[in-house]
Amino acid sequence: MKNVIVYVEHRHGATRKVTFELATQAHAIAEQLGGKAHAVVLGAGAARLAEALTAYPLDVVHVAEDADVDTYLLDPAVDYLEAAARAAGPSLILIPNTLSGRDVAGRLVARLGAGVAADVVDVKIEGGRVACVSPKMGGAEITTCVLKPADFGIATVRPNAFAAQPGGAGAAIETLAKPAGKSYAAVVDSDVEEGSGELALEEAPVVIAGGRGLGGAEPFDTLLKPLAEALGGAVGASRAAADAGWVPYSLQIGQTGKTVSPNLYIAIGISGAIQHKVGMRSSSTIVAVNKDGQAPIAEFSDLVVVGDAFKIVPELTKLIQAAKA
């Protein structure tokens, strides 16, 4: 492994901060390995996004604005990525640890005969080998996993694990040739976006999360949203709240939802089940508002205020608004 390749996830050219985090980190790793930093951008909006990526320290941005990428489920994207990897030569491939990122990673494991390190929060080069650090066992162990020497290795990287820093000489943009002789089976008939336009949970510096204790959809709007706005953050939820239909699943935090690590996480009416904890435990500061001082969340919060969210949260929002005014 010598080069680093970033798989750029986006929707019609709109991407998340993790893309720039990976672009920045790719350069740092490639420098240590003595190779080049590449990015691959595919599908509708790719050309525009590639331009934006030249502000980051990459050597080459490979682009294919091919309609097939959006018409078929992942197959064309995997073909392009495989082709780009083989053309670049031995490489570490960085993929965001998202639902679709995991799919891409799995497919490339088999295509490239590669190892994969999942949910990576740090990458170190030790004696020329790539070592990936990931929390495992619900965060009870921080593991270091080496990708054995091979042409290709893969890391799915947790959003917010690395800083994004523009810089570099300006990457060359190159068009990827369409891999020949492929036919695709899984057709995307429709593609619906929910809850767009809001600050992405994974990149919010502050997350205000609500759970079953809120009792309904309304408090998410009347209680949590104003607090999130006052603190410049985003609203999240436990699975119980998403399951109840109070918020869309895209707001769910935890093992089956988003992994967040903001500066501040306020858990309101959330008990702190292990599946929730794994998605937020690396937050810098954790505050919980809960009726029950014995709830598991108390074991990993910096401050637990025992009491009724409906009484505490509006007052807190007022204090913060007043301080800002």
Partner: peptide
């Protein structure tokens, strides 16, 4: 389900 919403797919 996708990261941002949902899709319908045939295969």
């Amino acid at each position: 389900e996708t990261d941002t919403g949902y899709q319908t797919v045939t295969a």
